[in-house]
C-alpha cells in the first residue's frame, strides 16, 4: 500500500521534471516545479521526516513560486522597455 503510493508519486515526479525541462512556456515550467515539491513533500512524510516535509511545504508551495514569478516579471518588463 505505502509502496504503491511511493512508486506512483515517484513516476509523477519524474514526469513533472521532464515537463519543467522541456516546456517552452516558462510559466508552465514554474508550475511543474511546484508540482515536484508537492509530491516530494508527501514522500518525505512517508520516510518519517516531518520537519523536512514542512520545510518543503512552506518553501516549495509558496515562496519559490513567488520568487520565480518576480524574476520572470522583471525579465518581461526589461524586454518591453527595449521594444518601446
Amino acid at each position: 500500500m505505502i509502496l504503491t503510493i511511493i512508486i506512483v508519486l515517484g513516476i509523477l515526479m519524474l514526469a513533472a521534471a521532464f515537463m519543467a525541462l522541456y516546456l517552452k512556456d516558462l510559466l508552465s515550467a514554474i508550475i511543474a516545479s511546484g508540482a515536484i515539491s508537492l509530491m516530494a513533500s508527501v514522500i518525505y512524510i512517508i520516510l518519517a521526516a516531518p520537519d523536512v516535509a514542512m520545510t518543503e511545504a512552506a518553501i516549495g508551495s509558496g515562496l519559490t513560486t513567488i520568487v520565480f514569478l518576480y524574476a520572470l516579471h522583471l525579465v518581461r518588463k526589461k524586454q518591453e522597455d527595449k521594444h518601446d
Binding site: 516531518p50 520537519d51 516535509a53 514542512m54 520545510t55 512552506a58 518553501i59 509558496g62 515562496l63 513567488i66
Partner: peptide
C-alpha cells in the same frame, strides 16, 4: 511538534507577500 524557526519565518513572510 514538527517545524521551527525557519518554517515559521517562511509562513510569516508568505503572509506579508
Amino acid at each position: 511538534t514538527p517545524g521551527g524557526g525557519f518554517q515559521g519565518g517562511v509562513v510569516i513572510a508568505s503572509a506579508i507577500v
